[in-house]
Design a protein around this nucleic acid. Structure first.
Lengths: 204, 204
DNA sequence: ACCATCGAGTAGACACTGTCTACGCAGGCT
DNA sequence: AGCCTGCGTAGACAGTGTCTACTCGATGGT
C-alpha cells in the first residue's frame, strides 16, 4: 500500500489518465497507453482482457475522483461555521455545493467527464460503473427529501430530475451550446436558475 | 427534387442513417458506409474530405428530423381544439409537448441522438451543427418568457436550464442510470418533476 | 540442488480502419 | 478531333485491436 503503485495494471491506468487529460478520449488507444507505460502493445492483455476494459478502469478512476471532489465540497460546508453532523446541515446549501462541485469537475476534467459518460464505450464491459454513481444519487434523494419536493412528486424522481439537470448543464457547456445560447461559458446563471427551479425560489 | 435523391453524396448519408439506426455509432465506419452505398472505399472522398465530415452530414440529417418532430408535436397541439396562432396557445402545454417530443426522439433513435451530441467527433468539422439547435432554443426562450421565469432569472438562462434538464434526462435514460435510480426506463415521472420545477407547480 | 511450472512481457501476424495517390473513363467544351 | 474535368476504382501506407507463439526469470516441490 505504497504511495505509488508499481504494478503494471495501475501504471496503465495512470498513464491513461494522464493521456486522457492531455489529449482527450480519442487519444486513448491501447497501444499508446502501453507505450506511455513503457511496455509492448501486448502487455496490457495480461491485466485487461480487452481495450474497453482498460477504458472502464480509467473511467472508474474518474468516478472515484468525482466522489472525492463531492465529499470535499460537502465537508467544506461543515468547516465554515456549521459544526453539526451531516444530516443537520442546511440541505439546500449542501445541494448547491454538490451541484457546483459536479459542474466544476466536468469543467476541470472534460476528457475524463467525456469518458465516464460514454456508455457506448463502457457498456458491456461488465463493470459496476453505474454503481459508482449510485451513492451520489442517494445523497441527492435524501437531501431532496429533506428540502421537500413539490406536492405529488416522489423524492427519487425529483432527485433524478435535478441530477439530470446538472448533467445536462455540464454536457451542454462542454459541447459549447451554452456559449452559443448565452454568450458565455459561465454556467453560473443557468445553475442558479436550475437550483431555483428545483429547490424553490425562497433560497436566493 | 425527386423522392429519392440519386447523388452519391445523399446516398452515403442515407446509408449512414440506416446503419446508425441498425448498429449504432461504432458501426459508422467510412468503408462500411461506402459498402452499403455500393461504392468503393475511396469514393466518399469526392464528397466528404474526411470521415468526420460524413458523420457531420449524418448528424445534420438527425437535427433536421428532430426539428421536424418538434414542429409536428407543436402543431398537434393546435389541431386539438385550440385553433389560435402560435403565440396564443398555452405556453406551458407547448413546452410540455416539446419536452416530450425531445425525449421521445432520443428514445426512438438512440444511435442518432448519440451521434448528434458527440461533440468530440463533430467539433472542428466546420459545420454549423450548433446553429441547428438554435431555433429550438429560441423557441424555449420565448415560451419561458411567456410563462414568466422566477424573479431575478433571465428568460434565456431559465430556458437553457430547462433545455439542459431535458437533455440530461435523455442522456441518463440512454445510459441506463434512470433504470438504476428509479427501477424503470419510463422518464414520465422525472419529466413531470422537471416540468413542475421549471414551470411552477400550479400546472398539474 | 535441480528441474518443472507458471506468470508476465515480447514480437509478430492478421484483419480492419482512415487517408493518400495513381489510374481509368465517361461527357462536354473549344 | 483533342483535351480536360468530374467521379469512381484500386492499391498502398501507417496505425489500430486482438490473437498466438515465444522467451525468461522467479518460484516451488522433491
Amino acid at each position: 500500500m505504497n504511495d505509488q503503485e508499481t504494478g503494471l495494471r495501475a501504471r496503465l491506468v495512470t498513464a491513461g489518465v494522464e493521456l486522457l487529460a492531455l489529449e482527450g478520449v480519442h487519444a486513448l488507444t491501447l497501444r499508446e497507453i502501453a507505450r506511455r507505460a513503457g511496455v509492448s502493445h501486448g502487455a496490457p492483455r495480461r491485466h485487461f482482457a480487452t481495450h474497453v476494459e482498460l477504458l472502464a478502469a480509467i473511467a472508474r478512476h474518474g468516478f472515484g475522483e468525482l466522489a472525492a471532489a463531492l465529499a470535499r465540497a460537502d465537508d467544506a460546508l461543515t468547516d465554515t461555521g456549521d459544526t453539526s453532523r451531516g444530516t443537520d446541515r442546511d440541505p439546500r446549501a449542501r445541494i448547491a455545493a454538490l451541484a457546483r462541485a459536479y459542474l466544476d469537475f466536468a469543467a476541470a476534467q472534460p476528457g475524463m467527464f467525456d469518458l465516464m459518460f460514454r456508455h457506448d464505450v463502457l457498456e458491456g464491459s461488465g463493470i459496476g460503473l453505474r454503481d459508482t454513481s449510485l451513492p451520489l444519487f442517494e445523497t441527492f434523494v435524501r437531501l431532496i427529501g429533506e428540502v421537500g419536493p413539490p406536492a405529488g412528486v416522489r423524492p427519487a424522481d425529483a432527485a433524478a430530475a435535478l441530477w439530470a439537470n446538472l448533467h445536462g448543464l455540464a454536457q451542454l457547456r462542454a459541447w459549447g451550446s451554452l456559449r452559443l445560447a448565452s454568450g458565455s461559458d459561465d454556467v453560473g446563471p443557468q445553475l442558479e436558475a436550475a437550483l431555483a427551479a428545483h429547490l424553490g425560489s425562497e433560497l436566493r
